[in-house]
Simulated assay, not measured.
Amino acid sequence: MKKHCMGRVVAASAVLVSSGAIAFVPASAASATEADCDGIGVIGVFKAVESGASFNYNGRRVELQNESALDRYSRAEIKSGRKAGDRLWVDRSFHAFPDFKGIVSDQSAKSDGWKMCGPYTGSRTQSVFNANYAARACAEIDGTTLCGKWYVD
């Protein structure tokens, strides 16, 4: 049975920026709860994922970060430039990629639905379980909703 994220994130066609690093999503983030996150207060060493999964926008550095010791969790963080009113969340696909690591397409990541951990108004989200799943960092900055590329760790 397929799982779908109904009403949490509006599915919309995204316009990719010339670098392909960020997608502008016309709808603002709906509210999810901490129950949609998989790891509350995960302690570990988190490192930024590049290749378009992390991005810069309007003076902010938004990172998708993966926990490097156990390699089981991802989170999003506004690393620099955060301002009052910024919102941040991390999406995680329900589609598993057991034999792949790296960037996947939006269509492939969303094929079995996805969930949203957040949004948060602080500088960092809680964590989602990322083993074999795609995750992406998203933010609402100055009224514009943006997401990095989906990354499988």
Results as ranks from 00 to 15, higher is better:
Met1Asn: 10
Met1Thr: 12
Lys2His: 06
Lys3His: 02
Cys5Trp: 00
Cys5Lys: 07
Met6Arg: 07
Met6Leu: 14
Gly7Met: 04
Gly7Glu: 03
Arg8Cys: 13
Ala12Ser: 12
Ala12Gly: 08
Ser13Ile: 11
Ala14Pro: 03
Val15Thr: 14
Val15Tyr: 00
Leu16Gly: 07
Val17His: 09
Val17Gln: 14
Ser19Val: 13
Ser19Phe: 04
Ser19Tyr: 05
Gly20Ile: 13
Ala21Thr: 15
Ala23Gln: 13
Ala23His: 02
Pro26Phe: 01
Ala27Gly: 11
Ser28Asp: 15
Ser28Gln: 15
Ser31Leu: 15
Ser31Asp: 14
Glu34Phe: 00
Glu34Ala: 14
Ala35Arg: 05
Ala35Lys: 08
Asp36Leu: 12
Asp38Val: 04
Gly39Ile: 10
Ile40His: 04
Gly41Pro: 09
Gly41Glu: 09
Val42Arg: 03
Gly44His: 02
Gly44Gln: 06
Val45Met: 08
Phe46Asn: 05
Phe46Met: 11
Phe46Lys: 06
Lys47Gln: 11
Lys47Trp: 00
Lys47Phe: 00
Asn56Gly: 12
Asn56Glu: 13
Asn56Phe: 04
Asn58Ala: 13
Gly59Cys: 04
Gly59Asp: 08
Arg61Ala: 13
Arg61Lys: 10
Val62Met: 03
Glu63Met: 06
Glu63Pro: 05
Asn66Ile: 12
Asn66Lys: 09
Ala69Cys: 06
Leu70Met: 12
Arg72Asp: 12
Ser74Gln: 12
Arg75Ala: 09
Arg75Ser: 10
Glu77Lys: 09
Glu77Met: 14
Ser80Met: 07
Arg82Ala: 11
Gly85Glu: 04
Gly85Lys: 01
Asp86Pro: 07
Asp86Ile: 05
Arg87Cys: 10
Arg87Tyr: 01
Trp89Lys: 08
Val90Thr: 07
Val90Tyr: 01
Arg92Tyr: 01
Ser93Glu: 06
Ser93Gly: 04
His95Met: 15
Ala96Met: 09
Phe97Arg: 07
Phe97Asn: 11
Asp99Lys: 06
Phe100Lys: 07
Phe100His: 04
Lys101Pro: 05
Lys101Ala: 14
Lys101Asn: 12
Gly102Asp: 11
Val104Trp: 01
Val104Ala: 03
Val104Thr: 05
Ser105Phe: 01
Asp106Val: 07
Asp106Thr: 07
Gln107Asn: 09
Gln107Phe: 00
Gln107Cys: 05
Ser108Tyr: 00
Ala109Ile: 08
Lys110Met: 12
Lys110Asp: 15
Ser111Arg: 03
Asp112Thr: 13
Gly113Lys: 04
Trp114Gln: 13
Lys115Phe: 01
Lys115Asn: 08
Met116Gln: 15
Met116Cys: 10
Cys117Phe: 01
Cys117Glu: 11
Pro119Cys: 09
Thr121Phe: 00
Gly122Gln: 05
Gly122Ile: 08
Arg124Gln: 14
Thr125His: 03
Thr125Asn: 06
Gln126Thr: 11
Ser127Phe: 00
Ser127Gln: 08
Phe129Asp: 14
Phe129Ala: 10
Phe129Gln: 12
Asn130Trp: 00
Asn132Met: 11
Tyr133Cys: 12
Tyr133Thr: 14
Ala134Phe: 02
Ala137Lys: 03
Cys138Ala: 09
Ala139Pro: 02
Ala139Lys: 03
Ala139Ile: 02
Ile141Ala: 04
Asp142Ser: 15
Leu146Met: 06
Cys147Tyr: 01
Cys147His: 05
Trp150Asp: 12
Tyr151Ile: 08
Asp153Ser: 11
